[in-house]
Amino acid sequence: MSELRDPRKTFGAAVAEVAEKDKRIVVLSADSGGSSGFKQFAADHPDRYYEFGIMEQGVTGIASGMATVGKIPVFCAIAPFVTCRSYEMFRNDLGYMKQNVKIVGRNGGFTYSDLGATHHSLEDFAIMRMVPGAVVLCPQDPGEIRQAVRAMLAHDGPVYMRIGNPPIPELFPEQPFEIGKGRVLREGDDLTIISTGTCTKEVLEAAEMLSEKGLDVRVIGMPTIAPIDVDIIRKAAKETKRIVTVEEHYVHGGLGSAVAEVVTEYCPVPVKMIGVPRVYAVTGPYNELLHYYGLDAEGILKTVSEFAAKQHS
């Protein structure tokens, strides 16, 4: 396992690197910039760093206005506050107006585990992917965060990206990021697991254990929730006949739903969605929450094994 990296610092440094060359990029903070990896950027570029205090609705609208005059605003804060709270601003001021603004929800999922449900974000994929034209990203490791930042800043239009908080390892060699494309991380023909965000680390571990049990699992990493990669899903459904989705999100509305929408329309096969049931999640240490909701390798192994057995019976 590689060295663990802070996703927020990785993100902030990646934005700063692109912003060195692209002077249109400005960073907006709702008392959130320092914790979003922008301490250095704020010190280096005070003229391109705007502090607004705790007003996520206002900042989202302000970002829209700045985009109309050619700026590329990046606004990062705690995930529920830049998705749920300011949703109408994202929908109207960014989506409907087609503005070139990047909204980043950090500490996404339930990585703010013990702070409770107010600080969890388990519906962000569901609501953000409903905005026409909006891109929804959830990179899986530090290298992919770096590459996704470059892709998101090069993309002309509204983007929502979710990153977490706990340090994460590099899972695969860094390579250019293409919005809307998943990639096969492990070949296999018995069943496909499609995963997003940091869940992919647990999925890869589970796949290894499944392989030892004789189940040859394909793993697809899906860092773009919207637009979803239709081709890779159709191919997997056709070739492996069964799909499991894994995400740190409600089982409803997120990656699993996006995959199921494709599967039911083009290539009906059984789909099992692994995620959090639609409840206000329990609180406690992050790893224990993952375990509680069956989102660690052990839980994924169990659910996939049961699903595979059921399909055979």
């Binding site: 302000i62 206005g65 700045m66 109309t68 700026k71």
Partner: peptide
């Protein structure tokens, strides 16, 4: 007003 504020600052 938020959009206009962003425009004004951006300009």
């Amino acid at each position: 007003l938020s959009i206009a504020t962003g425009m004004a600052l951006g300009l």
